[in-house]
Design a protein around this nucleic acid. Structure first.
Lengths: 368, 368
DNA sequence: ACTCACAATTTGAACGATCAAACCGTTCGT
DNA sequence: ACGAACGGTTTGATCGTTCAAATTGTGAGT
């Protein structure tokens, strides 16, 4: 195979200098239109493409974003990262960026990996997922001035810190919307099946349910508590919990669940209890939800990905903004999820939709 | 932040030349032990790391493997790619390789993307997934002499072509093993629930079941056909099919399924038919299988990843072998999957395990 | 006509590493 | 004792690009 063409080859063919070719690629507006056209023809003719490593060496930019692949596909909702990755890769490509993966055993190992990537000038920016309370990775990234965004808000610390840009899905709005959907179908005693209190994500979601219920039915905290059950993440846990719940007979009419796993367990329980039409809604819209016809709240990961890039590169930018060039103001984005309605929440013919939250339009989707 | 140290900085500190520093990194054995020690101290002291882009420019190697992220998370088994990615990234890192992602709408688009990556010298090798009959991507990769491996055997064309290296999971062995497992528990009328004939993967898996049944019970083809049902991929399809199947009363005792989706549908059907202990086994060991306690055949993706790298880089190599330097002989690897036994296939106390196929040891796993 | 500003293009010098060849000091064979 | 061979190290060139400064050409202003 012939040697790949270089700028010099193009320059020779177009009768200009190296630099002009470079300019056509990187700053087309400073080149006379006529010259530019000639160079562009030559580029097309030779099938020239810049050698990325050479460019990176000179510009000291890798045009690469690193993201860690979680060690454990965390159960049923593992596909979230998968879908996020896909969206991120696509959006990144539109801005001339690549996505590179790495793995790490734990936070300390992740920091070591990040240091290696940074030192090798392999990466312009990092996306951190699965943030924890007082996350040491965040502290390191801030201290080392590595541009980053976290997918997941900073639990525990300051949500508005200008040092910690983040994007997240508005679980509050999603569950609020799901609850309103059931209310709109005429249901009143709608329960919430969540995780034990203390998980930021779970609490946030419950708040969405609680707000919707309070708004409509003016319930007291005690009444809300009575409608709430909690259990560990996991289908069998949820199944047992809901079995018991149905036995106790509170006149429960529907369940909003904090995750698809719990919702799946709930579905199995209500089915076996002979109430197959008992409405259940999950969260994450995992493939399982689709498979079994479970209504669920879908994270709009393409929007999350786009938002993450906006924070890293500015609205339209094609390069990552260095850590110290950002204005000292909070940078974050909450993305509203959307409710996907399936069989599991059908009860009666759909009523007029109540003008709901910013979570936006409902989707109707039926398995064929 | 101070300028990152370069080879020259290290050289100055260690009182040697650039090249010696380079040698310590790339060919330590040709450097005198004493000198090497001095250089290594200097490297540690300065925290030096080679600038990867510079290295790549000079060596004309990107140390990067590209893999396409499928556009659609293909339903319930989408996490396969996710897990494969994780294993690949880890194994690749051990050999000094990075994994870069890209997306594409279709095969033609994928070829365009690959061309871009190749022309930008961004990628040393490619891993192709979801191979199809007469795959145009494979043809392109061969013609352009881009090093690659496909995850998935070449359906339709020559399995032993020296031009097409591939790794795949031995679905035959996996299902054979699953069937033997049920036979070992004293069952005789074990059915197979598959996809419509014609899909390579599905046919291969059925063959595993058929062989096991024939070996033990000397069934005719007609009898095997009578024990086989087929349906489209999808939980609701499987559920309907199995509902009907159970109604017809063939004295069916168990079901081996071609996928977890179908197995999940089958589980739902047998449960509602009041036979919750009717054994069902799936394929892929997706998170759902784990969540609902479904026995399933697990693809050992870490081994697949390792095998893929072996084919690209040789057993121990740390760089990708150029396409024309391979011996002209078939290169492929079949990885035996392993059966994960859960509640869905418990019937009686476990008998002595029959010395089974190369699919190896069974795993026992119970949800807590 | 001369300077000045300005747009368009070219030239030389990096960026940080490795390759290939040269160099130096020993040791060995004859 | 002399040249060859060899291990260990250094030197100059190079990978393909962009940066920064220099150069050329053009028109306006005085």
């Amino acid at each position: 195979m012939a040697q790949l063409p270089t700028v010099d080859d193009v320059a020779r063919v177009a009768n200009v200098s190296r630099q002009t070719v470079s300019n056509v690629l990187n700053a087309p507006d400073i080149v006379r239109a006529e010259t530019r056209a000639r160079v562009e023809t030559a580029i097309a003719e030779l099938g020239y493409r810049p050698h990325e490593s050479a460019r990176r060496l000179r510009t000291r930019q890798s045009s690469t974003i690193a993201i860690r692949l979680d060690p454990v596909t965390n159960g049923i909702s593992g596909s979230i990262l998968d879908r996020f990755l896909h969206a991120l890769t696509e959006r990144a490509a539109e801005r001339g960026m690549r996505v590179m993966l790495f793995t790490a055993r734990d936070h300390d190992d992740e920091i070591a990996q990040l240091r290696r990537l940074r030192d090798g000038a392999d990466v312009d920016a990092v996306i951190v997922t699965a943030t924890t309370y007082d996350d040491p990775r965040i502290a390191w990234l801030i201290a080392e001035r590595v541009p980053f965004v976290s997918f997941g808000r900073p639990w525990g610390s300051d949500l508005d810190s200008p040092d910690h840009p983040w994007v997240d899905v508005d679980g509050y709005a999603g569950v609020y919307d799901a609850t309103r959907h059931l209310i709109g179908r005429g249901l009143t005693r709608i329960g919430f099946l969540g995780w034990p209190a203390g998980s930021g994500t779970g609490d946030e979601r419950r708040r969405g349910w609680a707000t919707a219920m309070r708004e409509r039915f003016a319930l007291s905290d005690a009444e809300l508590d009575a409608l709430t059950s909690t259990t560990e993440e996991g289908v069998p846990f949820a199944r047992r919990t809901v079995e018991q719940l149905l036995g106790e007979q509170h006149g429960l009419e529907a369940l909003v669940c904090v995750s698809d796993s719990l919702a799946l367990g709930a579905m199995m329980a209500v089915r076996e209890a002979g109430q197959p039409r008992f409405p259940v809604i999950g969260f994450d819209n995992t493939p399982v939800a689709q498979a079994v016809g479970l209504s669920s709240v879908e994270q709009r990961l393409d929007q999350v990905a786009a938002a993450a890039l906006d924070l890293l590169m500015g609205e339209q930018g094609r390069r990552v903004i260095p850590a110290d060039e950002h204005p000292r103001e909070p940078r974050h984005r909450l993305v509203a999820p959307k409710l996907v309605v399936r069989r599991s929440s059908h009860l009666a013919p759909v009523e007029e939709e109540a003008g709901s939250t910013e979570a936006g339009n409902h989707n109707r989707e039926e398995p064929t």
